[in-house]
Each structure stands twice: as C-alpha cells, then as structure tokens.
Deep mutational scan, measured.
Amino acid sequence: RTSMTEEYRVPDGMVGLIIGRGGEQINKIQQDSGCKVQISPDSGGLPERSVSLTGAPESVQKAKMMLDDIVSR
C-alpha cells in the first residue's frame, strides 16, 4: 500500500477544536481515518496553520473530510 504525505491548511483559530480536550479529537481523527495527523506548532502569525497528513490516499481523504467537518461547524 502506498503511503503519501499531503500538506493541508486549517484556520489557526480552529486548531484547539481539531486537537480537542487532551488530544481527544485529533486521536479520533487518526483512529477513524487511519491517517497520521501532524499540526505544525506555530502558524507564524498567519491566519492558517499547516497540517501534514500521512497515510494511504483514502486515509488522507477521510482525514481531510473529518477536518473540514470540524472547521465548518
């Protein structure tokens, strides 16, 4: 199975929601999608934060859908 890494961007203000209490939400995204999700520690003052998604292409797609779902709330 091919693994890929894709850079994705999320609004900086949503990072807390994506990570969740004690990392609960980000762990759920990783478990449900099978994709490794790494959020860059700092946006460098930019409105968006970089997130790197690593996994099989379908896992990366699923993680993106889950991120979009959180961001659109």
Rank of each mutant, 00 (worst) to 15 (best):
L46K: 15
S50H: 14
S59T: 06
K64I: 05
K28H: 07
S52H: 14
G55L: 00
D42C: 10
R1C: 10
I70K: 04
T54P: 00
V37F: 01
I70R: 02
V37Q: 01
D12P: 15
Q31H: 13
E24I: 05
D69H: 07
S3F: 15
Q25M: 08
G44T: 12
P41Q: 11
C35A: 12
V37D: 02
S72Y: 10
T2S: 15
T54S: 11
T5D: 04
K64M: 03
G45V: 09
M4S: 10
I29L: 08
V10L: 15
S40A: 14
S50K: 14
D42Q: 13
S43M: 09
R49I: 09
C35P: 02
Q25P: 05
V51H: 00
Q38K: 10
S3Y: 15
M4C: 14
R9A: 07
G55I: 00
S59R: 04
P47Y: 12
R73H: 09
K64C: 02
G44K: 14
A56C: 15
S43P: 10
I18N: 04
D32M: 14
G16N: 09
P11M: 04
I39Y: 04
T5I: 11
P11F: 00
Q31Y: 07
G23K: 07
S59D: 13
G22M: 09
A63I: 00
L46T: 13
K62P: 01
I29H: 00
K28F: 04
R21T: 13
I29T: 01
M66C: 03
Y8L: 10
D12Q: 11
M4V: 10
E58R: 06
G34W: 00
A56K: 07
A56D: 12
E48H: 13
R49H: 14
K64T: 03
D12T: 15
I18K: 04
G34F: 00
Q25C: 09
R9S: 12
Q30S: 10
L17Y: 07
S50E: 06
E6M: 15
D42W: 06
S52T: 15
Q30V: 08
T5A: 05
G45A: 06
A56Q: 09
Y8A: 03
I26N: 01
M14D: 06
Q31A: 09
V15T: 06
K36M: 12
I29E: 01
I19T: 14
G16T: 09
K62S: 06
S40T: 11
D69P: 02
G44R: 10
T2M: 15
A63V: 01
L46N: 08
R9K: 15
N27T: 13
P47L: 09
G34C: 04
M4N: 07
K36P: 00
V60Y: 01
R21V: 10
I19A: 09
Q25D: 12
Q38E: 15
P47C: 12
K62R: 09
Y8V: 11
K28Q: 10
D42E: 13
E7M: 12
K36L: 11
G23I: 04
S52K: 13
V15E: 12
R49N: 09
T54Y: 14
V10D: 03
S40Y: 06
D68W: 02
L17V: 09
D42I: 12
P57L: 04
R73T: 15
R21G: 11
I18R: 02
S43R: 12
S50W: 08
G44L: 08
T54E: 08
A63L: 00
K28A: 08
E48Y: 15
S72H: 14
L67S: 02
R49M: 08
K36H: 11
V51L: 14
M65A: 13
L53D: 01
L67F: 03
C35V: 06
I39H: 02
L53W: 00
E48C: 07
Y8R: 03
Q31T: 14
V71A: 08
L17G: 12
I19M: 15
D32T: 10
E24L: 06
V51N: 00
E58L: 05
S59M: 06
V60P: 01
D32K: 11
R21H: 13
S52F: 13
P47K: 12
E6I: 10
D12V: 09
N27Q: 12
G22W: 05
G55D: 01
I70W: 04
G45L: 06
N27E: 13
E7W: 09
S50Y: 08
P41F: 08
K62W: 02
G44V: 08
Q31W: 04
P47V: 07
K36R: 11
G13F: 06
M4G: 03
M65R: 12
K62A: 07
A63E: 02
T54A: 05
V15P: 03
Q30R: 10
L17I: 11
R49E: 05
C35S: 03
A56V: 09
T54K: 07
G45R: 07
Q25E: 13
Q61F: 09
K28T: 06
L46P: 07
V37C: 08
G13A: 10
Y8K: 03
K62M: 10
S43C: 08
S59F: 02
I70Y: 07
D69R: 11
Q31E: 10
S50A: 11
V37K: 00
T54H: 10
M65K: 15
D69F: 05
I39K: 01
I29V: 06
G34L: 04
E24K: 10
